[in-house]
């Protein structure tokens, strides 16, 4: 997995690419989310358009980001959830806990 990020309208947008399966991927994404919190960047969108698939390790990282941001009065939103990841979110019922949007722009508007 490769990870980049940018900022737009005061929101940090994380752009992971590839597969999120554990090992080094887990540390990279987890650490970046927690770095945002340290820097008081508490509005975060994860753009999943470039993620081929993830396993439960990836889901765990998303949950960690969600709960840590919430505990710090922040918000995490998902954008461009692919069909494969949407299927996993649905069968695990996690679709009910994440705020998922069809595009980054829509996710950004939802913060306003």
């Amino acid at each position: 997995m490769k990870l980049s990020y940018r900022e737009e309208a005061g929101v940090a947008i994380l752009e992971p690419k590839g597969k999120i399966m554990g090992g080094p991927d887990a540390t990279l994404l987890h650490d970046q989310l927690h770095e945002f919190i340290k820097q008081n960047k508490l509005k975060v969108v994860i753009d999943l358009s470039g993620v081929d698939w993830m396993n439960s390790t990836g889901l765990g990282i998303l949950i960690s980001g969600l709960t840590t941001l919430r505990n710090n009065k922040g918000e995490l939103k998902l954008a461009n959830v692919t069909e494969k990841i949407h299927s996993l979110l649905t069968i695990t019922k996690l679709i009910t806990v994440f705020d998922a949007h069809d595009s980054v722009e829509e996710a950004l508007r939802s913060f306003q």
């Binding site: 439960s56 889901l59 949950i63 960690s64 709960t67 996993l88 695990t92 996690l94 009910t96 806990v97």
Partner: peptide, 21 residues
């Protein structure tokens, strides 16, 4: 069960459930 309300926000415990699916 990872689907139980009290477990939904657990970061682990979904692996074998997903494999079975």
């Amino acid at each position: 069960s990872p689907l139980a309300e009290e477990n939904l926000l657990r970061e682990v415990g979904r692996g074998i459930f997903i494999v079975r699916h």
